[in-house]
Amino acid sequence: MRHTPYVGSGPYCYANSFAMLLGERAPSTAVIEVATGGPFGMQLIGGTTVFFDAYGWKPELGFDQALEAIGWTSTVSRGGDAASALARLADAAAKGPVWVGPLEMGHLHHHPEMTGPIGVDHFVVVLDVADERVLVHDPHGYPYAQVPVDDFLAAWRAETVDYGDPYTMRTDFQKVADVTDADAIRSIVPTAVKRLAMQTDVEMPPGSLGNGEAAERVAQMIEAGAGDGLREHLVYFAIRVGARRLSDTADCLLLAGHPEAAEIAATQARLVGSMQHPMVIRDFPAAAAALRELAPTYDRLHAALVQRRVGTG
């Protein structure tokens, strides 16, 4: 089957937020997302939480790498108390849009059915702070959303997000180099190889698994009933973003001159995407079978990228 690039909605909050800040000179969100190094692998964290992204990877690990790859810099500030953070945000927003996150999505009550923390990270672009509300472009589908200050500060503390520091934001985005999309992706291939080899400086909790082992273990968990929120996590988030990332990875690798690796990534995208309907209707054997077919593709993708790097010396 020929790979067709995907265009549509999806949970790409930080890539979309970066694209809004970079404006007309921004690369595609696909390039931004893939340049973080996130799509290269699969992880089961602590034996319970699965993501179709690299072992030991969390979004903040890839932000500076992605900006460097595409030729941009920014200034990061974080920490402090709520009052000083709000003042810092208001001052920055008076000068221009501000990239903010991670936020705890459950505190953002303009999202329907959000009533409290759910342990899900989110990123937005802040446009203004005034009159006890924060005006944001929320890339989850809510332009010009007005968020009460107290709700925003609760979300921005990110106490229930498993990475990052409270009150983190980025400003002063500057383009420092003209980089083609193809060159941006070529520059992160060494990182992709390390990610696929499960090389990480992050200390992972006991029971964590990566790549093929993670796929096999998650298949077993699904066959056992996909309990403890696993089914919901997969159908509402992990499958959607995982398939999207891998589809974009296929497009980007092909653009960068890695056709074999691109074909493998496209296969991964189809396998992850194929899990959505079975998981929704609780056809757990079909979803588990897709994961078992996915398991060996990580070694194949690693080998294809290594071979291509050696071949082009």
Rank of each mutant, 00 (worst) to 15 (best):
R2C: 08
P5K: 09
V7W: 10
S9V: 14
G10M: 05
A15C: 13
A15R: 02
A15P: 15
N16L: 15
N16C: 11
I32L: 14
I32F: 02
I32M: 09
E33V: 00
V34F: 04
A35Y: 01
A35H: 01
T36I: 12
G46D: 09
V50I: 15
D53T: 05
A54C: 11
W57Y: 15
P59L: 05
L61R: 14
G62E: 04
D64T: 12
A66Y: 02
T73I: 13
G79A: 03
A82V: 13
A82L: 08
A82C: 08
A83T: 11
S84I: 05
A87C: 01
R88C: 01
A94W: 02
M105W: 05
G106W: 11
G106I: 11
H107G: 08
L108C: 12
H109E: 08
H111D: 07
T115R: 14
H122W: 13
V124M: 03
V125K: 00
V125W: 01
V126L: 07
D131G: 01
H140N: 11
Y142A: 03
P143S: 03
V147I: 10
V149A: 05
V149R: 04
D150H: 08
L153M: 10
W156G: 02
A158E: 06
E159S: 08
T160P: 00
D165M: 05
Y167M: 10
Y167T: 08
T168N: 02
M169V: 12
R170I: 07
D178I: 04
D178M: 04
A182V: 02
I185M: 08
R186V: 06
V189I: 15
P190R: 10
A197N: 13
Q199R: 13
E203V: 15
G207H: 06
G210A: 02
E213W: 02
A215V: 12
V218E: 04
M221P: 07
I222E: 05
E223Y: 02
G225M: 13
D228Q: 12
L234Q: 00
V235M: 10
R244K: 09
S247E: 07
L254G: 12
H258I: 03
E260C: 08
A261T: 13
A261C: 08
T267N: 14
T267L: 15
Q268N: 15
A269H: 14
L271V: 14
M275D: 09
P278T: 07
P278W: 04
P285H: 07
A286G: 06
A288E: 06
A289Q: 12
L294E: 06
D299N: 12
H302S: 02
A304D: 03
A304E: 03
A304K: 00
Q307N: 12
Q307C: 01
T312N: 07
